[in-house]
């Protein structure tokens, strides 16, 4: 089902396929933690083509490959490669494809991962293409929720913060809706989710600009960063950013089992005291990037 497959967009994965990824990811956890050794991908080479800076995504892919006994080649600074000489992406991909067994790509232009997948014979995994898709982030977010609650259907999930520019929340909203969760959108007026994203959701989500409206009802608070540069007026930014901050006091009103997630890096949208509450899951979520990416690598390379 997965061998040789490209992972370009979350929309191409069915619920059954996501369940398989989660099941394999669960088995990978002890290996991801270094508690168990495994050489499933021994002799395999992953090429990481990072045309844009990234720490978490790139390093968790590298960790995933290394934990499974494989090796990694690649670049994270295209100015030092032949791309700066004007090579097309199609050519770079064809060459790197011939050096490796699987490619992970991050690129500033939308649709670049699809193009890479067309030119590569081996599987291509999209690690973010401009404002487009970032399916492995969505999978690790879903995996974190799945781990916590077992089922995603019927859960109440609030997406909070910058819902306009954040690509993470766009694919996550799509996937949550596809899996049957109830979505609550919490954002300042200026940063509301674009209508073309809402149009693709199965049910119309509830929209509000106040966390207080949803805090008592939700199982998951998915918080994103509100960037200063989105606001023409810095005082307006201060006012808005302050009203979307997650604090231990706010969480007193939340359900006992509610969890707080964040794709990281956070700045001050979640107070550091929240780290010590039973609700915090963002570091767990960041760790989950490793087993989920291990699962994807093992599946597309056909070893599990």
């Amino acid at each position: 089902m997965f061998k040789g497959r490209d992972i370009v967009s979350i929309k191409e994965l069915s619920k059954e396929e996501m369940d398989i990824i989660f099941e394999v990811a669960r088995e990978m956890i002890p290996i991801a933690k270094g508690e168990r050794k495994n050489n499933l991908l021994e002799g395999k080479i992953l090429a990481t083509l990072f045309f844009e800076p990234s720490t978490r995504t790139r390093l968790s892919f590298e960790s995933a490959m290394n934990r499974l006994g494989g090796s990694v080649i690649g670049f994270s600074n295209p100015s030092a490669t032949s791309i700066s000489k004007g090579e097309t992406l199609a050519d770079t991909v064809r060459v790197m494809d011939s050096y490796s067994d699987v490619i992970v790509i991050r690129h500033p232009y939308e649709g670049s991962a699809r193009l890479a997948a067309e030119f590569a014979k081996n599987p291509v995994i999209n690690a973010g293409d401009g404002a487009g898709q970032h399916p492995t982030q969505t999978l690790l977010d879903l995996f974190t929720i799945h781990q916590e609650f077992g089922e995603i259907e019927g859960l109440n999930v609030a997406l909070i913060g910058d819902l306009k520019y954040g690509r993470t929340v766009h694919s996550l909203a799509y996937a949550l809706s596809y899996l049957g969760a109830n979505i609550y959108l919490v954002s300042p007026e200026l940063l509301r989710m674009p209508s073309h994203i809402i149009r693709e959701l199965k049910e119309k989500p509830m929209e509000t600009d106040k966390i207080e409206d949803v805090i008592e009802d939700v199982d998951v608070l998915y918080v994103t960063r509100i960037q200063k540069e989105r606001f023409p007026d810095p005082t307006e930014y201060k006012k808005v950013a302050g009203s979307y901050r997650i604090t231990p006091e706010l969480l007193k009103k939340a359900k006992d089992r509610a969890i707080v997630m964040h794709p990281l890096p956070r700045v001050d949208e979640i107070e550091s005291d929240v780290d010590y509450t039973k609700h915090a899951r963002y570091f767990q979520q960041a760790f989950n990037g490793v087993p989920v990416r291990m699962a994807l690598l093992a599946l597309v390379l056909g070893v599990v």
């Binding site: 097309t88 992406l89 199609a90 690129h107 232009y109 939308e110 649709g111 193009l115 401009g130």
Partner: peptide
Amino acid sequence: RCMNPRCITNQREPV
């Protein structure tokens, strides 16, 4: 052609 200026098909690629 795609209307999105940031679409990879609007760059210098053989597609």
